[in-house]
Design a protein around this nucleic acid. Structure first.
Length: 545
RNA sequence: GGCGUCAUGGUGUAACUGGUUAACACGCCGCCCUCUCAAGGCGGAGAGUACGGGUUCGAUCCCCGUUGACGCUACCA
């Protein structure tokens, strides 16, 4: 039973608050947003916070801020409410409990009492025997007496879905039918022993209860779709349409990751990318914008243009962006009006378009399925186009609201006050906080008693340590012990340790205090700088060979 | 390893879903403009559509196989 094609379209994104808002969330958000606006449907934001272990308290707010920054406004969500709330899964645990009872009762799910250690041992045995690691169904057919005994003992358990024999075929709107043999589908855990549901259960229950008609999500979910289909069937519910979007990629074509690319939307905002450029670039990923023919461009004079009115900012590099940037496009569904600043390049006809343009012309069915590389080079060019199209006033405002905001300067000032003799020296000590490309020469970053090789290896270790932080834990108090611990482990003195990082961050051996500087500069940009340093050095080393 | 998905220059896309010298943009190179650097203008190199078979008068486009890449393979999402 599939969803009624007459039903009004309702789509959703369901990010989980486990860290910085991700560029992939924005991409999938964009496609969902477009589809909803084009079908006069609703776009729902749901927070999937069922993973207590990875939960990050500030993450949810950053997700809101980032999506609004991009102009991807939702119709229902945790902050807005709506007819099918609550929209935060941690507030729906009772609902999942009731539903999983239904499955237990109709025999499509069962309790399993193995503990994590036993399961891990099982996995290891299977791997050793070169078998596919999978739950062996050990507690699938426990007798009622046995179950009661375990329950009486108070033994913790999970609830797993009972995958029947056979196979499942579902339709992907972009690829056609996809079939999975059930022998390849695990008896997935639906309810964890902590009483929280897994993604699979929560996602199906919520999508049904929230009347979601189209599940537009990333390709990585294809393999678990049969589980979801099986769940819909177990509940006796209509199955939504599935659209699996290609995954954004690193330059080396692997799934986009923070190890190889800035993936945090906070980074892009702080580094001074304009939301219009960002959303435009995301719209380029995977295609979807039909080519403009001469005939069309004549009939559609308003289509490709830059609209400086859309500069939606309010974000300063370090202070959290306001909840609702005043200048965010209020209604992107109607073509923006106002001054059209159209760059003179030919590419303005094909590569440059706004969110309203996309609402008007984007065709989700046109999505190209090969994983598009998220290429910063082109993003930067695009951003340059948008910057040049700004009026001088808007450009000035953009600077003052981001890279030169009062909030930013107020944090920097105390770091340099005791270190300069004339105000004119301010830039001498702080230019690294305003520059994008900082690259210390080897004589600056390699400590006297170290070789370049061990220095780079240690820098890579530093990066690993720093990557473990998220924006909310990125503080002086937390960073200091973490870095010092690494130094102790690797036998690097505090001086060598901090001096190296200082050189990478500032390009110099002389700077304001390191930790404070890192905090002011922000996690995303600091990491990006270290990452770029390492990459550049790697390239240099290859050239020398 | 198993299962699944994908495949047009270095990158992003286009090519009336079978008929083009395979187009556009980014990047790269050169020239012009110019006090410099950008921007802008002009031009150039770079793919014969992963490979091999079919079907067809004709395949980037349809079919099969191979290869490669990627994803999943958690009490994460």
């Amino acid at each position: 039973m599939t969803i009624n094609s007459e039903s009004p379209v309702r789509v959703r994104i369901a990010p989980s608050p486990t860290g910085d808002p991700h560029v992939g969330t924005a991409y999938i958000g964009l496609i969902n947003y477009l589809y909803a606006r084009q079908s006069n449907g609703k776009f729902v934001l749901r927070i999937e916070d069922t993973d207590r272990a990875r939960f990050v308290a500030t993450s949810e707010q950053e997700i809101f801020n980032s999506l609004r920054w991009l102009g991807l406004t939702w119709d229902e969500g945790p902050d807005l409410g709506g007819p099918y709330g609550p929209y935060r899964q941690s507030e729906r645990t009772e609902i999942y409990r009731e539903h999983v009872e239904l499955l237990l009762a109709n025999g499509t799910a069962y309790r399993a009492f193995e503990n994590p250690e036993e399961l891990e041992a099982l996995r290891q045995r299977q791997i050793a025997a070169k078998l596919p690691p999978r739950y062996d169904g050990g507690h699938r057919d426990l007798s009622q007496a046995q179950i009661d005994a375990y329950l009486a003992e108070g033994r913790p358990y999970v609830i797993r879905m009972k995958v029947p024999a056979g196979s499942t075929t579902f339709r992907d709107e972009l690829r056609g039918d996809i079939t999975f043999e059930h022998s390849n589908v695990d008896d997935q855990v639906l309810m964890k022993s902590d009483g929280f549901p897994t993604y699979h259960l929560a996602n199906v229950v919520d999508d049904h209860l929230m009347h979601i008609t189209d599940v537009i999500r990333a390709e990585e979910w294809i393999s678990s779709t049969p589980k979801h289909v099986l769940l819909y069937q177990a509940f006796g519910w209509a199955i939504p349409r599935f659209w699996h979007m290609p995954l954004l990629r690193n330059l080396d074509k692997s799934k986009i990751s923070k190890r190889k690319n800035p993936v945090s939307l906070i980074y892009y905002r702080q580094a001074g990318f304009l939301p219009e450029a960002m959303i435009n670039f995301l719209g380029l990923m995977g295609g979807g914008m039909p080519a403009v023919t001469d005939a069309q461009s004549g009939k559609n004079p308003g289509a490709p243009h830059l609209d400086s009115e859309m500069w939606a900012s309010g974000a300063s590099p370090t202070a959290p962006a306001p909840l609702n940037p005043a200048s965010a496009p209020a209604d992107a569904a109607k073509p923006a009006s106002g001054a059209q600043v159209k760059p003179q390049t030919k590419s303005s006809e094909t590569d440059i378009f706004t969110l309203p343009d996309m609402v008007a012309r984007f065709d989700v069915k046109n999505i190209r399925l090969g994983g598009p590389v998220f290429d910063l080079t082109k993003l930067k060019w695009l951003n340059g186009e948008y910057i040049r199209a700004l009026t001088p006033e808007k450009f000035y405002t953009a600077l003052r609201e981001t890279i030169l905001s009062d909030a930013y300067l107020q944090q920097i000032a105390p770091l340099v006050q005791t270190r300069i003799e004339t105000l004119g020296e301010f830039g001498n000590l702080t230019h690294f906080l305003f520059a994008d490309d900082i690259m210390p020469p080897a004589e600056v970053f390699v400590p006297k008693k170290r070789t370049p090789e061990e220095t780079l290896a240690f820098a890579a270790d530093q990066l690993t340590v720093l990557e473990a932080f998220d924006s909310s834990t990125w503080t002086h108090e937390a960073l200091e012990p973490a870095l010092k611990k690494l130094g102790e482990e690797k036998q690097w003195s505090v001086k060598e340790n901090f001096m190296l990082l200082r050189a990478i961050l500032t390009g110099s051996t002389m700077s304001p205090p390191l930790l404070e500087s890192m905090v002011v500069f922000g996690k995303s940009r600091t990491l990006d700088r270290v990452r770029r340093f390492l990459e550049a050095q790697k390239k240099l080393a290859n050239i020398k060979k």
